[in-house]
Simulated assay, not measured.
Amino acid sequence: MKTAGVDEAGRGPLVGSVVAAAVILDPENPIEGLNDSKKLSEKKREKLFIEIQEKALAWAVAEASAAEIDELNILQASLLAMRRAVEKLGLQPAHVLVDGNKIPQGLSVSCDAVVGGDAIHPEISAASILAKVSRDREMAELDRLYPQFGFAKHKGYPTKAHFDAIAEHGVIAEHRRSFGPVRKALEQMEGGAAG
């Protein structure tokens, strides 16, 4: 039975897309060292990222944009990105395992949510690595466009450095306007402009 593992990266940051991945591993071609992406070094994740793409029977990465996050909310946008990743797979899985406690709506296959699944099921671990590396690369790209924000370092998370950059440089199009700190910064900017 071909089982797809699904996970996402980037629910907590204030900027950019939420990225999801779906992976169907090949039991004949195992991958050593799969684990929750957060427990792996960046170097190890990059190495596994390539290996997963080479050895998996099928893999796909999809996202929901900052605008979609603002429109739907972060949970629904994460589930949407997950559904898109499953739908992009070149192979139809017989079953889907999703990291977390919620299942994307609208999937045409059976699905289970597994809390902490990225540390238990290798196919979810593989998906977590693809999602995390893809999201980090997106942040590196954003860092090249807006070096003053330091996205390559903090990856868009709500750190002091990020707050300081927003205070100094304002909000960019990729910021999630529905997130409290961004909304607050926009209100202060508008208040300052009005005054």
Results as ranks from 00 to 15, higher is better:
residue 3 T to P: 08
residue 4 A to Y: 15
residue 5 G to R: 02
residue 6 V to M: 10
residue 7 D to E: 09
residue 7 D to I: 02
residue 9 A to L: 03
residue 9 A to I: 09
residue 9 A to V: 06
residue 9 A to R: 05
residue 10 G to H: 04
residue 11 R to S: 01
residue 11 R to W: 01
residue 13 P to E: 11
residue 15 V to H: 03
residue 16 G to T: 12
residue 16 G to V: 11
residue 17 S to W: 14
residue 19 V to Q: 08
residue 23 V to M: 00
residue 23 V to A: 01
residue 28 E to K: 13
residue 29 N to P: 02
residue 31 I to L: 06
residue 32 E to P: 00
residue 33 G to P: 00
residue 33 G to I: 00
residue 34 L to Y: 05
residue 34 L to P: 01
residue 35 N to Q: 11
residue 35 N to G: 07
residue 38 K to I: 08
residue 38 K to T: 11
residue 39 K to Y: 00
residue 39 K to T: 11
residue 40 L to D: 02
residue 43 K to P: 03
residue 44 K to H: 08
residue 44 K to C: 05
residue 46 E to C: 04
residue 47 K to S: 13
residue 47 K to F: 11
residue 49 F to K: 04
residue 50 I to C: 09
residue 51 E to S: 12
residue 54 E to Y: 02
residue 57 L to G: 09
residue 59 W to E: 09
residue 60 A to K: 03
residue 61 V to I: 15
residue 63 E to P: 05
residue 64 A to Y: 04
residue 64 A to T: 14
residue 66 A to L: 12
residue 66 A to R: 08
residue 67 A to Q: 15
residue 67 A to G: 14
residue 67 A to M: 14
residue 67 A to F: 13
residue 68 E to D: 15
residue 68 E to Q: 15
residue 70 D to K: 06
residue 71 E to P: 06
residue 72 L to D: 06
residue 72 L to N: 10
residue 75 L to Y: 01
residue 77 A to Y: 08
residue 78 S to K: 13
residue 80 L to D: 12
residue 83 R to Q: 15
residue 85 A to S: 12
residue 85 A to G: 10
residue 89 L to Q: 01
residue 90 G to K: 14
residue 91 L to H: 12
residue 92 Q to P: 12
residue 95 H to W: 04
residue 97 L to N: 04
residue 97 L to E: 00
residue 98 V to L: 03
residue 98 V to I: 15
residue 98 V to H: 03
residue 99 D to A: 01
residue 100 G to E: 01
residue 102 K to Q: 13
residue 102 K to M: 10
residue 104 P to I: 00
residue 104 P to D: 01
residue 107 L to P: 00
residue 109 V to D: 03
residue 113 A to D: 02
residue 113 A to M: 07
residue 114 V to L: 14
residue 115 V to F: 01
residue 116 G to Q: 06
residue 117 G to D: 01
residue 118 D to Y: 05
residue 118 D to W: 07
residue 119 A to E: 10
residue 120 I to P: 03
residue 122 P to G: 04
residue 127 A to D: 13
residue 128 S to A: 09
residue 136 D to Y: 01
residue 137 R to W: 06
residue 137 R to T: 09
residue 137 R to C: 09
residue 138 E to K: 07
residue 139 M to N: 02
residue 140 A to S: 14
residue 140 A to E: 15
residue 141 E to C: 07
residue 142 L to F: 05
residue 142 L to C: 04
residue 143 D to P: 02
residue 144 R to Q: 15
residue 145 L to E: 14
residue 145 L to V: 05
residue 146 Y to L: 10
residue 146 Y to N: 03
residue 147 P to N: 06
residue 149 F to H: 08
residue 150 G to R: 03
residue 151 F to V: 06
residue 153 K to I: 11
residue 153 K to W: 06
residue 153 K to F: 07
residue 154 H to L: 04
residue 155 K to G: 06
residue 156 G to I: 11
residue 156 G to Y: 10
residue 157 Y to A: 05
residue 157 Y to R: 10
residue 157 Y to G: 00
residue 158 P to F: 08
residue 161 A to S: 15
residue 162 H to N: 14
residue 166 I to W: 10
residue 170 G to N: 14
residue 172 I to D: 03
residue 173 A to M: 10
residue 173 A to L: 11
residue 179 F to W: 13
residue 179 F to N: 02
residue 179 F to Y: 15
residue 180 G to K: 12
residue 182 V to R: 03
residue 182 V to M: 07
residue 184 K to I: 05
residue 185 A to P: 07
residue 187 E to W: 11
residue 187 E to P: 05
residue 188 Q to H: 12
residue 188 Q to Y: 08
residue 190 E to R: 12
residue 193 A to S: 14
residue 194 A to R: 13
